[in-house]
Write a protein that binds this DNA or RNA. Structure first.
Lengths: 212, 212
DNA sequence: AAGAATATCTGGTCTATACCAGAAAAATCT
DNA sequence: AGATTTTTCTGGTATAGACCAGATATTCTT
């Protein structure tokens, strides 16, 4: 039993096959949301593998976001993902301005970063191009209405910034304090592809940076 | 050797102690970026644990973003994180408008989501409040200048949207095509805390949703 | 010196087993 | 019936081995 199956080399690892099975059962709807997945031991028995292998399969399913673990209770099916109805929303701010809507903007956080592959493609710049990430809070009639994070091409942002620069910052700081944030800034991650990870010296699915 | 150390119960798991050691060496600068971490077998020997335990420690270090793996070559120290100089940037768009800067806005993607703990705090709404996530591309003089993702409180966004709605969408669709995106939309993730994960039925560190 | 064969690294996968502690259900005792 | 114990689940941690295949360094040939 110590010998591995040599008949089909270069095939997918065993645990991956189990992952596929489990995924099918979940996305196929045979397992309703929040229902229990088979336990590690059950999977091991069912598929004739060791518990560690079963565990890895279940962990992989988890890593896909299809399940979650409740310690010492079991693993359960995650609720399905939301849909993303394509909204017709656009240029809020320009229109708001034009229509005289009461709108204020506050900078919550800003940091420098560089363009990853996806962004580079969208923004039509080279990968690694210097970007500025800015998170801002918008207030409509004094109420927080939306939060945005934007990635600005550092080079081009200068010309846009020159015009106002001076006044906005101290104002922003005052305005934000009532929200008692200070320590919490929105952290955002993007999963890196294997290629990007290698390139950047990061591990796959790891986020570039965290703000504090 | 099969018996575990019973002298100090409830202590941190062994692999965690190794993680701490490795982390120290990396953040302490004793291991320069892109230098090789000890191999799984080396760690196992050095710390007197089995290879699987050593492996788990190294994987944990990776999960923290401190290292990356090159298959069958080794594990290496990730480059340090960027700094986030607090910029004085603010309300780009309002100022741009006022100063007559040529600025166009395009909706790249939009989806519905709900407020997580951090966002709820910042936006002053209940956790789970319906939000709309919109990703837009801004063009300055015909050149892509920045990309933003914003989270709008669904309820309040309506009033802002009513004003323009009609014209923006078809325009956005045309404008965007030259970028050949279609299949690539910026994917964004936020790591869930253990508490949030349990609440939402997701696994920790998993992102809420992916757009395709 | 240049090229081919070999030995030795590496991480990736896997087995079979063990003990732990929290959670939950079942059995037991009031 | 209600409270308490016990048993049986669960995942979490850990061991000590094993084989695989890609990457690399070494050595041996030509």
């Amino acid at each position: 039993m110590l010998r591995n199956d040599k008949t089909h080399r270069a095939s997918a690892p065993r645990f991956q096959q189990i992952v596929d099975r489990l995924r099918d059962e979940i996305v196929g709807g045979r397992l309703p949301q929040h229902s229990a997945l088979p336990s590690e031991r059950a999977v091991a028995d069912q598929h004739g593998v060791s518990r560690m292998t079963a565990r890895r399969a279940l962990e992989a399913v988890e890593a896909e976001g299809l399940a979650y673990t409740a310690e010492r209770k079991g693993r359960f099916v995650s609720p399905p993902r939301l849909n993303y109805p394509v909204s017709s929303m656009a240029n809020f701010l320009t229109d708001a301005e034009e229509n005289g809507v009461d709108l204020e903007v506050e900078v919550i956080a800003a940091r420098a970063c560089s363009a990853d592959a996806a962004m580079a493609r969208v923004l039509c710049v080279a990968e690694g191009e210097a970007l500025s990430e800015v998170t801002r809070l918008f207030l409509n009639g004094g109420h927080a209405t939306f939060l945005e994070t934007e990635y600005v091409i550092a080079e081009r942002s200068d010309q846009l910034l020159k015009a106002h620069d001076a006044t906005s910052k101290p104002l922003a700081e005052q305005r934000f304090s009532p929200f008692g944030h200070d320590a919490d800034i929105v952290i955002r991650m993007r999963p890196l592809s294997a290629a990007e990870a290698e390139l950047l010296g990061l591990s796959a699915n790891q986020a570039g940076i965290e703000a504090e």
